[in-house]
Simulated scan of single mutants.
Amino acid sequence: MRSALLVLGAQRNMLEGDGAVPTAQSVRTAVDRLLAAARAAGAVVVHVQNDGPRGYPDEPGTPGWELAVAPAQGEVVLRKDVSDAFAANPGLAARLREEDVGTVVVAGMQSDFCVRATSRSALQAGFAVVLASGAHATHDDDASAAVLSREVEEELAADGVAVVPAPEVRF
């Protein structure tokens, strides 16, 4: 079986400029390395672009909405307007199965929204799920971004997700 890399919300509003997540540079580097490894291994790569509401930094068609990492030829680009990429794209699980995908590697934004929801849906769909630690992030909120991301990793690990440091992820 093959692996797939889901890159969630790696958009300019999250990785560039004043509104970027606190760890934007290190997350961007980790995502770039995961993409290189996935591409070299022939893994399926899916970029999921978040469509924010009117007036938000990720409003469709605005500079912040644009993907910060360009998809390579043949890579899938999907859009979503809810946290869960599988709920927003009901055919995603079937599409991955058609590609003989058994393991989904999750990276991107935001840990406490899209990463959490999409990882749980991938599990529910029957995929083995790997969360690439260091390749996902969020903004500070009631707790620091680092604490929120760590809590999400702990929650998802308890659910059955393998949390693996991004440099150790294999496709």
Rank of each mutant, 00 (worst) to 15 (best):
M1A: 14
M1K: 07
R2A: 12
S3K: 06
L5M: 08
L6S: 07
L8R: 04
G9I: 01
G19E: 08
G19H: 09
A20G: 01
T23V: 11
Q25D: 15
V27A: 04
R28T: 15
R28D: 13
V31C: 04
R33S: 12
R33V: 12
L34A: 09
L35N: 09
L35H: 11
A36F: 04
R39G: 14
A41R: 08
G42C: 05
A43L: 02
V44T: 15
H47P: 05
H47A: 09
Q49S: 08
Q49P: 03
N50V: 12
N50Y: 14
G52M: 01
R54H: 12
R54F: 09
G55E: 11
Y56T: 15
Y56C: 13
D58M: 13
E59Y: 03
P60G: 05
G61M: 13
T62P: 02
G64A: 11
G64N: 05
W65H: 15
A68K: 01
P71Q: 12
A72V: 01
A72E: 13
Q73G: 12
F86E: 12
G91L: 08
A93F: 13
A93E: 12
A94H: 13
E98H: 11
E99A: 15
E99Y: 03
D100L: 05
V105Y: 10
V106K: 11
V106F: 01
A107S: 11
S111C: 06
S111A: 15
D112E: 14
C114I: 06
V115G: 04
V115P: 04
A117M: 09
R120Y: 10
L123F: 10
Q124G: 15
Q124M: 15
Q124C: 07
G126H: 02
A128K: 07
V129S: 06
A132C: 02
A135E: 06
T138V: 03
T138H: 01
D140F: 10
D141I: 08
D141C: 11
D142W: 11
S144K: 12
A145K: 10
V147A: 13
V147G: 04
E151T: 06
V152Q: 14
E153S: 13
A157Y: 07
A158W: 01
D159N: 04
V161H: 06
A162Q: 11
V164F: 03
V164H: 01
P165L: 07
P165V: 00
P167Y: 05
V169Y: 05
F171E: 01
